[in-house]
Write a protein that binds this DNA or RNA. Structure first.
Lengths: 343, 343
DNA sequence: CTGAAAGCGCTTACAG
DNA sequence: CTGAAAGCGCTTACAG
């Protein structure tokens, strides 16, 4: 590409025989500049194809009007929906989004966060990766006076703004639904327990058993079954038990639930009559499978909106004495074919 | 949030009784600085929790190490995959990604592009929105000496770097496959013809008819059927014809194909025996439907990789005499249940 | 209403 | 190997 000399406010000033100060003021629509010259300046800027250098402007103003987002994966429905939800709001306010993916890798996450600190972003929005539970890098964000908002997968011990789902309640409702549907041996596919969201989902599972006075069967709880493949693997193990489950709550994701469904289909086990299945996240495909999968909607876009609104609400709030806000969004159980026994 | 005074190179210099010049050199790992002082500087920087201000650095260097991406929707599989593919490469090179969504709205697209120009991004990567065919804003990008890479949905008349799919060939293969499968009346659900990709897909459709010497039936071509809803609507119209089609090529997307499948199921029409269905894009759900949907894989992640690599390859290439590169990725027909008549 | 000047935090050509 | 100085393009407190 050929290097193009960009028009600066000095070029405009020179052409008009005035100072850059006035040009700057006019371009910022300051009231303390003559209406006529303002018009002239704007017209000239347009003619010279002037574009403000945001870098310089932000450097001078000590802000960046940029929000950094760190998520495990961009190309996963839940996260891309949250981003879309964030963008919806930030765009209107003239803020930019810098996106980094951690790839579920703690080291890369640390690097992403550091890059964003260097960029002097005004806020970092993060959903932490599944590996590692060292949150020094997030503490570092706070130490630099950068706003930090965690969502979904949060480091609980860090006192920051948080936007989360009520995972306990959602899981409780899902399992209650299965119990009320007459399922007797309800298995749990759980996710990495270092992530609080997965701990909470297990908690909800156990809570439902307690509420209905049903004993928990330890052998029906499968660790670390949070991908389609691991979900399928866990299901095979479960179904080969002397007393196999008659329902499986794939608490980690619909992907995991899909693994369950695949195995059931392959083994000729009828869903929902012989095996009930409940997933999590309301991925778009969960509606399309046959039978469609009962799942939990997390209102991901709304969650993104909430994150962004929280940021703007907290801007300029210098009161550090109040405890950081935690906003909990109630997810919704979506009952579909995979658990409708008497449909 | 409390305002925190950040450590600058001057703070480090002062503490060490040297100049900022040396600090800067040390931090940039320049060879022309004493090894021992370099170590000391780095250690001190670390102690003071120094983070380079990338804004200032970039302003001085006249670059931003940032790439702007404008897509219609973040939360659409194809686009989020492309972004993931871009990020994979740019991340390694220390580049940041600023993401904007145009929401298929031309005005918002223009605004996004302008914001990115203001940000002094080094490159703008774009897949244009479906409405409007005025590309002045893209010309503007070039006029500012910013690299412009178009992908998938491109404005053909603009001479820029492009990464595209061979849509004609892919559609040709898809329709050929249907013809060879014995389907006689193959309908086309087409997308907005102001987007070249949809024109090309239609071209491939027509090309196949020609190659097999099959007459085109105009009434089987349905305009503007590029969402699930519009696909369903078009299908209802088609199936109520005196002579309905026995196959439908939803050239716009798998979403559209899904609409076809829904209608077929609702009307009790058997797929693939009574109606063949072929989609486009290999969305993750297309594998899961019953029957699974024959579709075309665009290698979206690879496409993202290609875009990023193209950028780095062209960096510093000052030769403006050569024509801008166009990289065409050959998509792959994925044959599944919805077209396997004798499976 | 307008100008002159300083400064945001860095980098780098120029001297020594 | 190190320093002094200029400058990237803006904004804004201070004068007038």
């Amino acid at each position: 590409m050929k290097k193009v000399k960009r028009t600066t406010i000095y070029d405009i000033a020179e052409k008009l025989g005035i100072t850059a100060s006035s040009v700057s003021r006019a371009l910022n629509n300051s009231s303390q500049v003559n209406e006529k010259t303002k018009e002239l300046i704007i017209k000239t800027a347009d003619e010279l194809n002037y574009k403000r250098n945001t870098l310089a402007s932000n450097l001078r103003k000590g802000q960046s009007k940029t929000i950094g987002v760190v998520i495990p994966r961009i190309n996963q429905n839940f996260f891309s929906n949250v981003i879309a939800g964030i963008e919806e709001i930030t765009y209107q306010k003239g803020y930019n989004l810098i996106i980094c993916q951690s790839d579920e890798d703690h080291d890369k996450e640390v690097q992403c966060v550091n890059t964003l600190i260097n960029q002097h972003v005004d806020c970092i929005v993060i959903s932490v990766s599944a590996d590692g539970n060292d949150y020094q890098h997030l503490q570092n964000v706070l130490d630099h006076g950068i706003q930090l908002i965690q969502f979904d997968r949060v480091a609980e011990e860090l006192e920051t703004l948080k936007v989360i789902n009520d995972n306990v309640q959602a899981s409780y409702e899902a399992v209650s639904h299965l119990i009320e549907g007459g399922y007797k041996r309800i298995a749990l596919l759980e996710g990495p327990q270092n992530l609080s969201i997965f701990k909470q989902r297990k908690e909800g599972y156990l809570k439902a058993f307690k509420a209905y006075n049903v004993p928990v069967i330890e052998e029906l709880i499968v660790e670390n079954a949070w991908t389609k493949e691991l979900g399928a693997l866990g299901t095979r193990k479960l179904l080969s038990l002397p007393q196999p489950p008659d329902a499986i709550f794939a608490s980690t994701s619909d992907f995991s639930a899909l693994g369950v469904l695949d195995v059931a289909n392959a083994m000729g086990i009828k869903v929902p009559s012989e095996l009930g299945i409940c997933g999590y996240a309301n991925e778009s495909f969960s509606e399309i499978t046959s039978p469609s999968i009962t799942t939990i909607d997390q209102f991901s876009i709304y969650m993104g909106n909430t994150v962004a609104n929280l940021f703007f609400q907290e801007i300029g709030n210098n009161d550090t004495t109040t405890k950081p806000k935690i906003i909990s969004i109630k997810p919704e159980l979506i009952i579909r074919g995979s658990t409708k026994r008497n449909g």
